[in-house]
Write a protein that binds this DNA or RNA. Structure first.
Length: 273
DNA sequence: GTACTTGTTGAACG
DNA sequence: TCGTTCAACAAGTA
């Protein structure tokens, strides 16, 4: 599923592929995906030129040259593919004036396209109460500790996945970050030692950096803007490896239910205390 | 046929 | 107000 590394990959590729292009026409095949009145939406988008593509949490932000910004969230199964072929899951198509196109596919239909005035973006994002960006200079170890301290009884895995605590981390990378840190997903925050917290803090950046380098994880439906799979799938240590041997200690990787989600971990080398 | 999956939000709880 | 839990959204896969 698209998490921070996948969305960041698409952002970087789109900056190479569609920046400076003019949107000649937008084709909306499934109107509910567009969270704006359709007439107003088309009027704002058609004829506009793309300046650049940005990212906040898992939201892609396409800045237009007319004061509007497009916000695109891929949620569980969204894809943005440059010059992709239309399928039964294609819901929106951006046609550019040079003949190229960008297609938005979403099998689950949870994704969205929104329209926000560029000067209202900060306001809008603030309202969403999204947590700090892992790669922001302001996201220091001290800030991380301060955020953890607010939720002493929360389980660490659920804390990492809560977008109001930290931007961009979902099920795959929270599992991988905790494995790298040797911390059990059920560990309560108040039971974390300072060395655990430091390890988690460092591994957040380390794992996400590696995943971005490999263009994300194609565990299910994720494809990058070229329609290609991400290579981090082959580097996963626990996610999706239930019943297989731990690469570190040879015990068997377990999967449990945690707040309606699955958590993968090694019961031997990820500690509960 | 049924359970399961997943990111985010909003309702409901104490 | 806050932290926490849980249903809801959709539809393909096992």
């Amino acid at each position: 599923m698209p998490e921070l590394p996948e969305v960041e990959t698409i952002k970087r590729q789109l900056n190479l592929l569609i920046a400076d292009k003019k949107i000649k026409r937008i084709e909306i095949l499934l109107p509910k995906i567009v969270k704006a009145p359709l007439a107003e939406f088309k009027k704002a988008v058609q004829g506009a030129k793309i300046i650049e593509i940005d990212r906040r949490a898992k939201i892609l932000i396409i800045h237009l040259n007319n004061g509007w910004s497009l916000l695109i969230h891929l949620k569980l199964s969204g894809q943005l593919i440059f010059d992709g072929q239309k399928t039964k899951f294609t819901h929106v198509i951006f046609h550019f004036s040079d003949g190229h196109r960008l297609i938005f596919n979403d099998l689950r239909q949870f994704g969205y396209v929104k329209l926000v005035k560029t000067d209202q973006l900060d306001n809008f994002l603030q309202k969403e109460k999204i947590g700090p960006e892992p790669f922001d200079k302001d996201f220091t170890l001290a800030k991380f500790v301060a955020r953890l301290d607010r939720r002493p009884n929360a389980k660490i895995k659920q804390f990492l996945m809560d977008p109001t605590n930290l931007a961009g981390i979902g099920n795959i990378y929270s599992d991988e970050i905790l494995f790298a840190s040797r911390v059990h997903p059920l560990r309560k925050i108040k039971d974390l030692k300072p060395s655990d917290i430091k390890a988690i803090y460092q591994n957040i950046r380390k794992i996400l950096t590696e995943a971005i380098k490999l263009k994300g994880t194609s565990a299910n439906l994720y494809l990058d803007a070229y329609g290609r799979q991400g290579d981090f799938l082959n580097h996963l240590k626990v996610y999706g490896r239930e019943g297989e041997k731990c690469y570190r200690c040879k015990d068997i990787i377990k999967r449990i239910k945690l707040g309606g989600r699955s958590a993968h971990f090694c019961p031997a080398c990820q500690r509960l205390v």
